[in-house]
Computed example of a mutant assay.
Amino acid sequence: MARETTSFVYVTYILSTPEKVFEAIARPEITRRYWGHENVSDWKPGSSWEHVRAGGERTVKVVGKVVEATPPTRLVITWAAPGQAADPASHSRVTFAIEDCENMVRLTVTHDELEAGSDMAKTMTKGWPAVLSSLKSFLETGRGLDIFGKPKAA
């Protein structure tokens, strides 16, 4: 029996260039500044990539393979929890489409092939909007959002 899948599409417009948006997704020293994680790979098709929690613990949170990399307009990766890395059927796919749109960039992130109702699918509905908002803030103002911060005591 085939598993039921779902997908999510997020679109945002950023006052930036396609080159800067692609770099912000692919360069670990940049991703840690707005995401709190580093995307680590050589970004060649077939290569592995890791999404590593930045800071002291350096925990690998997500793993996958690079499916396609066409800087600065497109990046496609598979996405899985480290414990599911050996099971290709448990991998989902993320596509970053970066389009020049007059004096800004239209970034479309499609996360598909997610198992419907899974913890990963539920996490993505909250995670991507926060990450993309932080990316937009970072590229436009130089400051990402504190999306992984703990609530402050009153």
Rank of each mutant, 00 (worst) to 15 (best):
E115Q: 13
K44P: 00
T110Q: 09
G36P: 03
D42T: 13
T108C: 08
T95H: 00
A97Y: 01
V131C: 15
R53S: 06
W128C: 02
V21S: 02
V76G: 04
H51V: 02
I30P: 00
H111A: 11
E38N: 08
W79H: 12
P88G: 06
V66A: 08
V63E: 03
G142E: 04
H37A: 15
P72L: 00
W79R: 03
D42K: 10
W128Y: 11
M120G: 01
E38V: 07
M104H: 11
T123M: 10
Y34W: 15
L114W: 10
G55Q: 10
A130Y: 12
A121W: 09
E50A: 07
N39M: 13
W43H: 01
T108F: 06
M124S: 12
V76C: 08
R27Y: 05
F138G: 05
G36M: 02
A26I: 13
A81L: 12
T78G: 01
K126N: 14
K65Q: 11
E57A: 06
S118F: 06
T123R: 07
W49E: 05
E102M: 12
L145A: 03
T141A: 03
P82H: 06
T125E: 15
W35S: 14
V67E: 11
R27V: 11
H111D: 13
D87E: 14
H51R: 06
K65L: 11
V105P: 05
A89W: 02
D112F: 00
D119I: 08
E113W: 06
G55L: 10
V66H: 03
L107C: 09
V62D: 05
I98Q: 02
Y34A: 04
A89P: 01
G55R: 04
P28T: 01
T59W: 03
E113K: 13
V63K: 05
D146G: 13
A97H: 12
R106Q: 13
P71K: 07
W79A: 05
P82T: 06
E50R: 13
K136M: 08
E68D: 10
F22E: 03
T110W: 02
V66K: 05
V21K: 05
T123H: 09
R33W: 02
G117H: 03
S92Y: 04
T70D: 14
N103R: 12
N39D: 01
E140Y: 07
G117E: 07
E50I: 00
P129C: 03
E29I: 00
E29K: 04
A69S: 15
G56H: 03
M104R: 15
K122Y: 03
A116T: 04
S137T: 03
W79N: 10
E102L: 14
Y34T: 04
A69C: 13
R32Y: 01
G55F: 09
K136Q: 13
S47K: 04
V105H: 07
V105T: 10
F96C: 04
